[in-house]
């Protein structure tokens, strides 16, 4: 499962007090870095390994929209949560972000959103790996008889790996506190 201590969250908000409060909310569980402008955030992204960006949408100078567009263009494997005082509109469909929080944001809401974003990221990586292993399993079972495969330890390892991943996927889906998301995942499986 996810090791929170290994995760680094970049907090970007031009209001220093707001950014510091986010740091307070997340500091116990994650490594945090705080920046107060979009430009400084991009430099931070360039220089450090960031796992998740929590970015204010409206900031003087470079807005949060521009920051996340850069993350998208640079094809960075980073979870992005937009935090804004503006209610979400239909344009969020095209917004390259994994979460959207409307201010004011409580500690619980922020922790939930960050945890959910990491969980989704973890789930996606699991599925990708699972599909990769399943593909190999299909190829091998088409090529060899079950009797032949039973003699191969590496194949037994593969089967065990797939079984463990299925359990991990199921556990991850259960980990989504939001019932709608977990329901959606259950429907997929």
């Amino acid at each position: 499962m996810i090791d929170k201590d290994d995760k680094t969250v970049l907090i970007v908000d031009d209001e220093q007090m707001v950014a510091e409060s986010y740091e307070l909310y997340l500091g116990d569980d994650y490594e945090t870095i705080v920046e107060y402008s979009g430009g400084a955030a991009l430099m931070e992204l360039d220089e450090n390994d960031i796992d998740l960006v929590l970015v204010d949408r409206r900031m003087p100078g470079m807005s949060g929209d521009v920051v996340i567009d850069h993350i998208e263009q640079w094809k960075m494997d980073i979870q992005v949560i937009m935090v804004t005082a503006v209610d979400p509109d239909i344009d969020i469909i095209d917004m390259p972000c994994d979460g959207y929080l409307t201010k004011p944001v409580s500690e619980t809401e922020m922790l939930d959103a960050v945890e959910r974003a990491f969980l989704i990221d973890y789930y996606e990586k699991l599925i990708s790996e699972y599909n990769r292993l399943s593909e190999k399993y299909e190829i091998l079972t088409a090529e060899f008889s079950s009797r032949e495969l039973a003699k191969k330890d590496r194949f037994a390892d593969l089967e065990r790996q797939i079984e463990e991943m299925e359990q991990d996927i199921a556990d991850t889906v259960e980990g989504f506190s939001d019932s709608k998301i977990s329901d959606a995942f259950r429907r997929l499986h």
Partner: peptide, 25 residues
């Protein structure tokens, strides 16, 4: 207008809440 109200009132509330949480430490 709704967007303005949303932005211009919720931001100060966020700031005030942040200040309260920081003060509580």
């Amino acid at each position: 207008v709704a967007s303005m109200i949303s932005h211009e009132l919720r931001n100060p509330i966020q700031k005030a809440n942040s200040g309260i949480d920081l003060a509580r430490t």
